[in-house]
């Protein structure tokens, strides 16, 4: 039996006494492309951070790639692309090549030295992403779209089984956003990478994702886009117009 890519069971989480996630449960199969939507403060980013081990839940259980999160150490199999860098310094002295190479650290043990294999993996990833020509550029000199591409390359350099993205297209113009989505879609199809994508872009995600998880502290809907678009319960929840907005490009 194939391991599930992700299993979340009865997950609860909160900050300073306020509950952010209430009894969230869902399962993601390998190769799925899950769009995670919901209003601001609905717990999307909190859930992603818990899955990545960056935050601790109040209760509940998570299994990633068949292993309980508490005992999961194979971080090279998970790629993470945030909305942007935490405290991005445009003058940070790192080249594109150096940034992508950092993604290889998760596959290494102390003292985490790079080898020729790492150089090869970095070159292959840059080639696949079409960014080899900017390898020597400084990360701060790049446009927002190119910078996100570089961070995506960093997330993909280990050929991860699961790619987790938290609103990666927020700062991008519509054209760049569309090409970014296409790239993720190709990767999901060609490399069979399981994708979790948090987005506010409900009008576009239906074109690319196979599944929709709609969160508002708890799971409002989880299933395939076809199920969502045919669900009268969801028509009742979102209204016909709201449901159409999500479904019209699917």
């Amino acid at each position: 039996m194939t391991d599930k890519a992700l299993t979340v069971q009865n997950l609860c989480a909160g900050y300073h006494g306020t509950e952010v996630l209430q009894d969230v449960s869902f399962t993601v199969n390998p190769g799925d492309y899950v769009g995670i939507c919901g209003p601001n403060g609905s717990g999307k980013s909190t859930m992603i951070k818990i899955i990545l081990g960056l935050l601790a839940p109040t209760s509940g259980a998570i299994s990633v790639l068949g292993k309980p999160l508490g005992g999961f150490h194979d971080w090279r199999r998970i790629g993470y692309l945030p909305q942007g860098l935490q405290f991005f310094n445009p003058h940070f002295p790192a080249t594109v090549d150096e940034v992508i190479r950092l993604g290889r650290l998760s596959a290494k043990k102390f003292p985490r030295r790079f080898t020729k294999d790492d150089t090869r993996a970095v070159e292959q990833t840059m080639e696949w992403m079409g960014i080899s020509h900017i390898r020597g550029k400084m990360i701060g000199e790049l446009s927002g779209g190119l910078r996100q591409r570089v961070l995506l390359a960093r997330a993909l350099v280990n050929d991860p089984a699961l790619l987790v993205m938290d609103e990666p297209t927020t700062a991008l113009d519509p054209e760049t956003r569309e090409s970014f989505y296409k790239l993720i879609f190709e990767m999901n199809r060609e490399k069979k990478v399981t994708v979790l994508l948090v987005t506010h872009d409900t009008a576009t995600i239906g074109k690319y994702a196979s599944h929709l998880l709609y969160l508002d502290k708890k799971v409002i809907f989880y299933g395939s886009f076809d199920d969502f678009c045919n669900s009268t319960e969801m028509t009742g929840f979102f209204g016909e117009h709201g449901q159409h907005l999500v479904c019209h490009r699917h």
């Binding site: 990545l52 993470y80 935490q86």
Partner: peptide, 18 residues
Amino acid sequence: NELFASTFDEELAKSSGL
């Protein structure tokens, strides 16, 4: 390499298991 990764972005470094 760990100092570099953590200086570049601490959250990304953590998500890599550092």
